[in-house]
């Protein structure tokens, strides 16, 4: 079965870019979605294999999505400009792999490998 990944990112150009890169890497993308509410709605219908989250979604934080993923056992990474996302988004983000921003294809591959060991 094809692996799926949820993308939560509020900046539309970056969201489009992540989608294209991940599809090229063979993933089926859920979203991308810009807001917490959109993400939680998607999670009601389908649980992805993994998720990639931006931390600061403009006027809101991604934290409730991270908590929902954690409680359902879905591993996730962040793609954040913050060095310590847990200081912004709370303890649920502590120790989570960060693909950074700008997000290179190489750093995406690295965090995806961390989340899904062979």
């Amino acid at each position: 079965m094809q692996k799926t990944i949820l993308i939560v990112e509020d900046e539309f150009i970056i969201a489009m870019d992540l989608k294209v890169i991940l599809e090229r890497l063979g993933w089926r993308v859920l979203g991308p979605v810009p807001k917490v509410a959109n993400a939680l709605r998607l999670l009601e219908d389908e649980l992805p294999t993994l998720a990639l989250l931006d931390v600061n979604l403009g006027d809101q934080l991604v934290t409730p999505v991270a908590e929902a993923l954690r409680s359902r056992g879905v591993p996730f990474a962040v793609a954040s400009a913050y060095d310590k996302p847990e200081l912004i988004g709370g303890a649920v983000l502590a120790g989570v792999p960060n693909a950074g921003k700008p997000t290179s294809e190489w750093s995406l591959l690295e965090v995806l490998a961390k989340l899904s060991p062979p």
Partner: peptide
Amino acid sequence: LRHRLKNVLGLVRALANQ
């Protein structure tokens, strides 16, 4: 400011790639 700068660079990267 540091956060915004990284975001802008992220945007530029995405534009170049797209």
